[in-house]
Amino acid sequence: MSAPARVESSAPVDQPATGAGTTAATVQYLLRLGDDALVLAQRLGAQLTRAPQLEEDVALANIALDLLGQARPLLARAGELEGRGRDEDALAFLREERDFLNCQLVEQPDVDFAGTIARQLLFSCYQLPLLQALTTSADEVLAGVAGKGVKEVAYHRDHAVQWTLRLGDGTEESSRRMQAALDRLWPFAAELFESDDLVRSLAVRGVAVDPASVRPRWDADVDAVLAEAGLARPSSVRVATGGRRGLHTECFGYLLAEMQHLARSHPGATW
């Protein structure tokens, strides 16, 4: 192990990053990845019965199921490493908003189908190279989830790309809506690539991947799709950020209230 580095994050991970510090940092990192997948699955799951065509209901549900399937072992692994007896459900249903570490992009509501697709495009173009790099993570569970996830997310990205092309290069209305959705969501993209001491220290240990390293690939992929679809790369300079530190947009509280209500109404119950 290399020299201990101080790790900064929302949670008090103040120990030197030897065994305990690295473990605590890994827990945080697993929560970031797991919460991204969980929250996006929650958004997509809510779209079932609302898609523009029945075939698309089935497609969106498949993507939601893949993401939920990624979230569960990530959260379970986080709980296991944390050692406080929290399982995937305790982490999903009993944490407070400030303890969720997903990026703000995935929590953004589904304004219309263009919004759903734009969010999918921005996220899957980031998630695919990230998971590809994580297949060799020193954390076996994480490497396993990444290995399986790469195939899933390759499909998610393809789905988003195909729809971006059709909406961008479809009708005047679809092009306008797709551009508006991109403009609306663009400020949330920068957060995906934010690097901090926590992720850098884990990257050094081969556990994590520095998200900044996948940015060039993301830029190239997204630019290529937008160009082919006749859409403009938004010029927004606003950068929305904070999710990795537990700061979320206003819509997120409602998402959690809905998701957690039943589980919290029956403390100690099993389902």
Partner: peptide
């Protein structure tokens, strides 16, 4: 789907 009380139940119901 959005309110299922466990992640396992959520996955089953989605499917």
């Amino acid at each position: 789907i959005t309110r299922a009380p466990s992640l396992r139940r959520k996955a089953i119901l989605l499917a």
